[in-house]
C-alpha cells in the first residue's frame, strides 16, 4: 500500500518560475487523509480568493496564489519576508476523483479537498458467525 498518495513534486517548469525574474515562494503545506478524502492545507497569506488557481492535470495538482505587492519602494527597518506568489505542485495518486476536487480559502489558509474514488474507499466487511 502506498501511503503517500499526495507527494511533493517541486520540479521546476519554465511556466512557473524560470521565465520571470520574480521570486515565487513555496507555501508551507499539511497533507491529510481520512477514509473519504485527501486534503491539502497551504499557508498563502495575503492572497485574495480570486487570485488563487488550482490546476489538476494528469495526476499533478498545482496550487498558485498570486499576491499583490503590498507597497512599493519602501525602506524596511526590518525585512524578514518578501511578498510574492506562492506556487507548489504535488503528484496525486489515482485513488482520488479529479471531478470532485473543491477548495476554499480563509484567513490566508487554502484548503483543497480531494475526495477518494468510491473504489478506493475502505470498506468494512462484516464477518458473520456461521
Amino acid at each position: 500500500m502506498n501511503d503517500t498518495t499526495i507527494e511533493n513534486n517541486d520540479t521546476c517548469t519554465t511556466e512557473t518560475c524560470c521565465r520571470t525574474a520574480q521570486t515565487v515562494y513555496r507555501p508551507a503545506v499539511d497533507v491529510l487523509e481520512n477514509e473519504q478524502e485527501w486534503a491539502l492545507r497551504a499557508n498563502v497569506p495575503g492572497a485574495r480568493p480570486e487570485n488563487i488557481d488550482i490546476d489538476y492535470e494528469r495526476g499533478q495538482l498545482t496550487i498558485r496564489a498570486h499576491v499583490e505587492p503590498r507597497q512599493d519602494n519602501v525602506r524596511y527597518a526590518l525585512h524578514e519576508y518578501g511578498v510574492g506568489d506562492f506556487v507548489r505542485t504535488f503528484r496525486v495518486g489515482e485513488d482520488i476523483d479529479p471531478e470532485s476536487i473543491v477548495a476554499d480559502v480563509r484567513d490566508g489558509v487554502l484548503t483543497v479537498h480531494l475526495p477518494k474514488r468510491e473504489t478506493a474507499k475502505v470498506r468494512k466487511i462484516a464477518v458473520q458467525s456461521a
Binding site: 517541486d10 520540479t11 521546476c12 518560475c17 524560470c18 521570486t23 515565487v24 515562494y25 513555496r26 508551507a28 507597497q71 519602501v74 525602506r75 524596511y76 527597518a77 526590518l78 525585512h79 524578514e80 519576508y81 518578501g82 506556487v87
Partner: peptide, 21 residues
C-alpha cells in the same frame, strides 16, 4: 531540482515573519 525552485531561504519563513517600515 536545481536553482529554479524557490530557494531554501525563501521557502521557509520565520514564525511569524515580520516586516517593519
Amino acid at each position: 531540482f536545481g536553482r529554479c525552485g524557490a530557494s531554501a531561504l525563501n521557502s521557509v519563513r520565520a514564525i511569524p515573519a515580520l516586516n517593519v517600515r
